[in-house]
């Protein structure tokens, strides 16, 4: 069962992250610490073991489904946020437009220099 073996790796890294958060009080989620540890481990090994790929690939493919129970929650807080929606939508839509333009412009200038050498 290569996938089970890989899944145990993923769970172990998450648990290590949990232990580190517990002892250091870092304001970072255990998942992010586990992810960074996994990246570092793979960089040391220089390849992705087939066991980890067998567990990681399907999990990443199912991410959208894993967040669905949470997404549905937004329909049940619509009333709570009455009167706040205009501010929220303006912030999200105008904020995103501004940040998209900034990212494109900034990276164009920075990569332009790299190209010119």
């Amino acid at each position: 069962m290569p996938a089970l073996n890989g899944f145990l790796w993923l769970i172990s890294y998450w648990l290590i992250g949990e232990v580190m958060v517990h002892f250091t009080g870092l304001p970072v989620s255990s998942g992010v610490i586990g992810m960074l540890l996994l990246t570092a481990t793979l960089a040391v090994w220089g390849r992705v073991p087939s066991t980890i790929a067998a567990a990681a690939q399907p999990l990443i493919g199912l991410l959208a489904m894993l967040i669905m129970p949470g997404v549905v929650g937004v329909f049940f807080i619509l009333d709570e946020l009455a009167g706040q929606w205009l501010a929220i939508l303006c912030a999200l839509i105008i904020g995103t437009l501004l940040s998209v333009i900034t990212t494109l412009w900034l990276l164009k200038r920075l990569m332009g220099k790299t190209h010119a050498r």
Binding site: L10, Y13, G31, V32, G34, M35, L59
Partner: peptide
């Protein structure tokens, strides 16, 4: 979601 977040380390690598 916990292990799935850890799994994102693979594409990052």
């Amino acid at each position: 979601l916990g292990p799935a977040t850890v799994a994102l380390g693979m594409p990052l690598y």
